[in-house]
């Protein structure tokens, strides 16, 4: 039995509200036409953080063996790194 593995209602509610606020923030950036290099960088950082919350807290990998946490977080780091490299490659065109 693990009573805290999935957090508390309070902790998960705070995370959910923060995730929604982060989504609204990025949505308003787009709606205001706030794009460009820094806008894309901010969007990528916020999206990465949202993914980390899902992996570590919602999927409870924070409490999993290190290997599994490393594989899942490593996957996300790799994917965003590839996206960044391709984006920068596109800028050079």
């Amino acid at each position: 039995m693990s009573t805290r593995m999935h957090g508390t209602p309070r902790s998960s509610t705070i995370l959910w509200v923060t995730l929604i606020l982060a989504t609204l923030l990025t949505w308003s950036m787009g709606a205001l036409g706030e794009t460009g290099r820094w806008g894309v960088a901010a969007l990528a950082v916020i999206s990465f953080w949202k993914g980390a919350v899902i992996i570590l807290d919602f999927m409870a990998l924070r409490h999993a063996p290190l290997l599994w946490r490393a594989i899942t977080m490593g996957w996300m780091i790799l994917v965003w790194a590839v996206i960044a490299i391709a984006y920068i490659k596109g800028l050079a065109q």
Binding site: S2, G7, S12, T13, I20, F58
Partner: peptide, 27 residues
Amino acid sequence: NRNAGALNTVLLLTASYFVVRAVQAAE
């Protein structure tokens, strides 16, 4: 339609949060 996409992000995040609350309730 980015608005639809953003709305869907909110819906999926909320569904995930509800699932977490369900797991906590089971505990």
